[in-house]
Nucleic acid binder design. Structure first.
Lengths: 151, 151
DNA sequence: ACTAATGCCTATAGCTACTATAGAGTCAAG
DNA sequence: CTTGACTCTATAGTAGCTATAGGCATTAGT
């Protein structure tokens, strides 16, 4: 199986496969005479494992550990359940954060109906008012170096 | 006001202020004899506007446009409401995505109670099973080049 | 056999929004 | 007059890819 075939089978991009190899997630595969990478079923399974982990929001270095664990079956898996637990907490926190952001955005939307100039537009005015943003709300005590949500 | 004072007043880091200047969000301020940046009330307001936008999940280039609009009040603000609308949709989509992810993670959590080896751990097994992931579910038809959620 | 298209190779730079580091200059207090 | 806090610039690093350039390998068509 050449890299393009593997890409088609898994839905992973060719460049991404090479990237995973460079990052040590996939072992350097054998090569053909013409120096093409050649993959087998095991490589495919490993890649699919990686992709499945990615879809679960795992970071590459977490996946790396999971892959090591996968090939050394003698150890205790408690940390895996802990990892999943941690991710669930993380997801919960993100959802809460987004719900809160949504509230603010809806407030923002409600503050202008459109058709205004930069000075009179309610949204622009709201964006300029710092103190206005819910002072009572704990979530709005933006930690000074906390990450800002991006899209 | 020196850069450190501005940082303290706004809660923005010194390096970030310099970064915003480099990116054209803040105008290069005046300098003291010793080549220190010197800021005034207007700069502070502009920075606070930027920070407020960031907290609403706006990207830097979106904020740049908003800043231009802010200083050219003659134009119509409809696109601003559109922008906010777009962000709300985006947030909705992200929340849905995270809820879905959470479901999967909880499934994962439920598939092993801990104390297993790499081979018998239910989580590891689930992560290896690609097809298992809800085939019927539309959200699981991961678009080939769609962004993967990260934390 | 020749050619064109496609696929593959490596290496490097770019993306976002910062953050960290190094090495040097400026300023106020003791 | 020295110490320490603050500031300056320039450069590199972060995550997880993506894009580009320039060059081989293979294959389909003529």
């Amino acid at each position: 199986m050449k890299i393009g075939d593997l890409a088609k089978k898994t839905g992973c991009k060719v460049v991404t496969i090479r990237y995973y190899e460079k990052e040590g997630l996939l072992a350097p595969p054998g090569r053909t005479e013409g120096n093409y990478r050649q993959y087998g079923r095991e490589d495919q399974e490993r890649l699919e494992f990686i992709m499945h982990c990615r879809r679960h929001g795992m970071k590459l270095d977490e996946i790396k550990k999971l892959l090591v664990f996968r090939s050394h079956p003698q150890r205790d898996c408690t940390w895996v359940t802990d990892l999943v637990e941690k991710h669930i907490k993380n997801v919960d926190e993100q959802i809460a954060s987004l719900e809160h952001l949504k509230m603010h955005l809806e407030q923002l939307r409600g503050s202008c109906a459109g058709g205004h100039s930069g000075e009179t537009c309610g949204i622009m005015r709201s964006l300029g008012n710092v103190g206005e943003c819910c002072a009572s709300c704990a979530r709005c005590g933006h930690p000074p170096d906390g990450p800002v949500l991006t899209f």
